[in-house]
Computed example of a mutant assay.
Amino acid sequence: MSRKRYLALETETARHYQNGGLDANGHKPETRVSDGGSIPCRHCLQHVAKGEEFLVLAHRPFPAPQPYAETGPIFLHAKECARYGREQAVPEMFLGWERIMLRGYDRDDRIVYGTGTVVGTDEIETTADRILENPDVVFVHARSASNNCFQCRIEPAE
């Protein structure tokens, strides 16, 4: 396995949303209370515990709008949480899931066709390695296999 990093949403971006900043669609994030189900926070990469407030908002995990810059819903803890710090380990929240989508992107933030795949969460490491071996791929998105929601970014470690 190659060395890679699992990068959560940047703290500056999380704080923007947690402080009421507008989302990618120009709306304030919605606040809800977790029922204890699968509510993955994209900043700490942990599930929001039952009874805790969380935000639902539209996020575009790309630097600028363009045809491949998908915008979709994400969840965040409503209160500040620490950013995921175990960058070289598969986030534990994925391990309770059955499947996840992985897809490679190039230096222009465009999908590299032929890299997208849905795999079991026990295959994240080896599949991300295989996708990152493609010379056109700069990073990989981990996304929900059922809803296509952005989870985190995977890239080679420096």
Rank of each mutant, 00 (worst) to 15 (best):
Pro67Glu: 10
Pro67Ser: 03
Thr127His: 00
Cys149Tyr: 05
Phe94Lys: 06
Arg3Lys: 08
Thr71Leu: 03
Glu87Ser: 11
Ala64Met: 07
Thr13Gln: 09
Val48Phe: 04
Ala157Lys: 09
Arg99Gly: 01
Thr117Met: 05
Met1Ala: 06
Asp106Gln: 03
Ala128His: 00
Leu55Gln: 04
Met1Ser: 07
His59Arg: 01
Ile39Phe: 07
Gln88Pro: 08
Glu30Gln: 14
Val56Phe: 06
Asp35Glu: 15
Ala157Asn: 03
Val112Glu: 12
Met101Ala: 09
Ala157Trp: 14
Gln18Glu: 14
Trp97His: 07
Asp106Met: 09
Lys4Asp: 00
Val56Gln: 13
Gly120Phe: 01
Leu76Val: 05
Gly72Tyr: 09
Val138Tyr: 15
Arg83Asp: 12
Tyr113Lys: 08
Arg107Leu: 08
Arg143Asn: 06
Asp129Thr: 14
Glu80Gln: 03
Asn19Ile: 02
Glu158Ile: 11
Pro91Asn: 12
Asp108Gln: 06
Pro73Phe: 04
Trp97Leu: 14
Lys79Arg: 06
Arg60Tyr: 06
Pro29Asp: 00
Leu7Ser: 00
Thr126His: 09
Glu158Arg: 04
Ala8Trp: 02
Val33Gln: 13
His27Ile: 01
Asn25Glu: 14
Ala8Gln: 15
Gly72Trp: 04
Cys44His: 07
Lys28Gln: 14
Ala14Leu: 10
Val138Asp: 11
Phe150Leu: 07
Thr11Ser: 10
Glu12Trp: 12
Arg32Leu: 12
Glu155Cys: 00
Val140Pro: 00
Asn134Cys: 15
Tyr84Pro: 04
Val112Arg: 09
Asp35Arg: 13
Arg32Ile: 01
Pro65Arg: 02
Ile154Glu: 03
Pro40Ala: 08
